[in-house]
Design a binder for these strands. Sequence first.
DNA 1: TATAATTCGTTAGCAGTGCTAATCAACTAG
DNA 2: CTAGTTGATTAGCACTGCTAACGAATTATA
Lengths: 150, 150
Amino acid sequence: MPGSKDSLRLEVADRLHSAAIHLLRYARKRDVLARVGPARLSALSVLVFGGPMALGQLAAAEQVKAPTMSRIVAGLKRSGLARIETDGKDARRIRVTATARGARLLQEARSRRVRLVAEILCGLREEEMDSLLHSAELVELALRRAAGTE
Amino acid sequence: MPGSKDSLRLEVADRLHSAAIHLLRYARKRDVLARVGPARLSALSVLVFGGPMALGQLAAAEQVKAPTMSRIVAGLKRSGLARIETDGKDARRIRVTATARGARLLQEARSRRVRLVAEILCGLREEEMDSLLHSAELVELALRRAAGTE
DNA sequence: TATAATTCGTTAGCAGTGCTAATCAACTAG
DNA sequence: CTAGTTGATTAGCACTGCTAACGAATTATA
């Protein structure tokens, strides 16, 4: 009976979507302390965890167009959170690198968000936490698979 | 040993946060079809599911300041997706209502997003889906509890 | 009751983030 | 060497968040 499996999927998708929206809206509140916008923070995170990369790569990783990323990188540079070098092989390319200050700021912002999210988990039992961890991994896995396919 | 429980919480929070970001970034891609920005779509959703309400209520529900919501509502009105009436009791208040067109557009946009998310769940087993559903409920519950506390 | 304080919404103006179109420079193919 | 392609930037639009300042209506108080 494929209909019921389909409708379960839709139900799950709906709930996941909704929970993700509400979770991020909640976590967002603490971002103001960083004095850095969400797009810059997110791009910085890619740089810190993924290492230096070209602008186009960064744009692709963030699922954003090149002009948008160009401005984000300009902002990071202006704030001293990232540094731009030229590529030796190809003079059109740039190489964006997180500075030490950028890495530090990212870790702090990230840790603030994570602690805020952690607070709401206080009332949960250990099995429930395990279930959440498992689910988060499932979602990441499913997304990676989907990204590879498309 | 409270330290290990704490670090488990942080780990879970980190993964949840990351999964939510990636999930929404993925789902976002389909929003362009609606020709309505995310803030308007989200506010419209509150109106459709929560019924007519004052601007301040809507702003609180969306965790946004009044001027921001004022502009969002103006946009919804301009697009014919919401309607504004005056409150009989209090002439300062306005009453924002989703129009039939607004409700229809919301359902369509929502269904597109949900179907997109559902697609990535195709490779999962039924127990895994159950686990996801349970986790989404846990997150929503924890958030409601946190919102009540603060 | 008259005045003061509060509340609700709007306007103005800033910063940030997304897009497309147009442009420029550098590389690659013919 | 010319033509096409690719990587990044610039310009200009729309949307979304904020604070500050305001006007209008309501409520509290002297």
